[in-house]
Design a protein around this nucleic acid. Structure first.
Lengths: 129, 129
DNA sequence: GGGTAAGTTTACGTTAACGTAAACGTTATG
DNA sequence: CATAACGTTTACGTTAACGTAAACTTACCC
């Protein structure tokens, strides 16, 4: 009957994702999260948890919180024609950026391979003088 | 006879990469660049230019300048056994991180596809009430 | 020789993303 | 009932990565 029965405390989420509760509250301050309340205490739904994961993934890719907020907005497309168009544009920009990051990663992986080779070589030259 | 004849001024590099000269000097301050000098004036070699590209690529992937500095150090492996081992460890860590970023990007690309679908749907529902 | 375009150093200012600490409520546990 | 273990708000502090501005030198142009 209740599709989202489980809830989370701020401490649980902090432990799960290895961040501080301060960070989670800060994200709420920035409008990235909007948990429920039981009295004073924050209560996080599974959806809130997913949102948090989204933000942290964005961080790993070098996104700012403002950019992550845009990503979150993409999950619930609303507004008039103009706003939806703007959203589509943002989606395409993100795709462009991700494509570029893929290139960058590929390049960097090759360079790491080379760096490892040089490193191993340098070690062998130390062993056999 | 001279393998690296060409040089660059700070302004040239700034224009090419669409950054400010302040940024380039800041990177030097942080030990990421070490250009030559002709009198007072900084003179950048092709190698300096490559280093700069490396830093900027790192930035696009969300690396800090400290991390980029480590990447640069990987280009000239030196030191004793212990230092080289440490370098190898760092290389492996970076590879791990890049692998994770690849996953993140793949996931995010799928989500962007879905977001675009929802967006297009929302627009069509506006057109046909 | 007066401008202007590029370079220089020095130094204070700013923004994002939290850290840290104080001061306080609420459960629950020995 | 005291003392952890968790939660809360409020507020000042910190770090990275530059921005901005002042005050100056050097080179070139007309």
């Amino acid at each position: 009957m209740n599709p989202t029965r489980r809830t989370y405390s701020i401490g649980e989420l902090a432990r799960e994702f290895d961040i501080t509760t301060r960070t989670i509250r800060f994200y709420e301050d920035q409008g990235l999260l909007a948990p429920g309340r039981r009295g004073q205490t924050r209560v996080y739904s599974p959806a809130d948890r997913v949102t948090l994961m989204l933000v942290l993934r964005g961080k790993r890719l070098g996104f700012s919180l403002a950019e992550s907020r845009q990503l979150i907005e993409m999950y619930q497309p609303e507004g008039n024609e103009k706003q939806l168009q703007a959203l589509l544009d943002k989606i395409r920009q993100r795709r462009q950026q991700l494509a570029r990051q893929l290139e960058d990663i590929a390049t960097m992986q090759r360079e790491l391979d080379e760096a490892e080779s040089r490193c191993v070589n340098a070690m062998q030259e130390l062993e056999t003088p």
